[in-house]
Design a protein around this nucleic acid. Structure first.
Lengths: 160, 160
DNA sequence: CCATTTGGTTGCCCGAAGCAACGATCAGAT
DNA sequence: ATCTGATCGTTGCTTCGGGCAACCAAATGG
């Protein structure tokens, strides 16, 4: 039975409850997403706007990369990425050098300053997360991380 | 040791990795949140804008309620809620009746049409989720739901 | 009876994202 | 070798969600 078939087969009662719970909790989380990530970002570095953080993380772990790869990874248009990268370059956090193998593309990389700011932001966010998750045993924190990672992987192969 | 103390105590290497993983995956999910929830919402009911769904869910499970409660629950200002509720009322999905116990407040409730649309949207979203999670055993789906619920509960007690 | 607080609405602004159009470049077919 | 189509990135325009501040109406407390 293929995955598509599984999706078409009518759900059992237990499955229905399980999916419904995920759907409900995901709706809450995504609805609060703006406020939440704004709150994480604002306290960290005022000049580093909340959205920029996600870009720096990805550039850090996959540089050198092109901006269209970044757009695909974050599921947003190239226009959005282009504008945000311009700001980051003006702040001196990233560098855009022409791709030697493709005259159209630019290669992105963190500058030394960019890496420093990213590390600062990351540890500050980790601190906020530690405060939030203070009551959880380490094993549960690890489990949450794994489940989120698995879920995020599911949305990897989507191209709008 | 209080929770605040735990948050202040320097993390062990294992804790650091665990928090770092959550932080990274959460950043990805929140960065994709707009596109993702837009994708969930667009296919469901074109006239029912993505943001409205979260409101209807909450009104459904806690009606009758006041709009400021809704704002607090979703961590957004009363202004935002007010505007979105106006649209929902014009579409005939909710009713705003004056609170008999407080002349300033309005009580929110789903209309019959609102409930019908909500059920449609919910089952459509559940279907999309089933497609996405088709490869997961039911037990993992259930676990994801529980972990998200626990995480969301942590952010309950926050009022900006 | 007046002052302060609270619930809700509206005006104005901002940031993020999509769409469309454009210039530049690459790649494949003739 | 050139022409055609596809791709990379940028910019202008628009939309939408949300915050802030001002405001009104109603409640609460002295």
């Amino acid at each position: 039975m293929t995955e598509a078939d599984i999706a078409l087969r009518p759900p059992t009662v237990g499955e229905h409850e399980a999916y419904c719970a995920v759907e409900r909790q995901l709706a809450i989380l995504l609805r609060r997403a703006r406020t939440f990530s704004a709150g994480m970002g604002r306290k960290v570095h005022p000049e580093l706007d909340p959205g920029a953080y996600g870009l720096l993380v990805r550039i850090d772990q996959s540089s050198p990369m092109r901006s269209s790869d970044l757009a695909a990874y974050l599921r947003v248009g190239r226009a959005t990425i282009s504008r945000q990268l311009k700001v980051l370059e003006e702040l001196g956090l990233i560098s855009r050098s022409p791709d030697p193998e493709d005259g159209r593309a630019h290669l992105l990389a963190l500058t030394a300053e960019g890496r420093r700011r990213l590390d600062d932001a990351r540890s500050a966010r980790e601190g906020q997360l530690r405060t939030l998750l203070a009551a959880w045993p380490e094993e549960d924190v690890r489990l949450l991380g794994r489940m989120l990672e698995r879920f995020n992987m599911l949305t990897e192969g989507m191209h709008p």
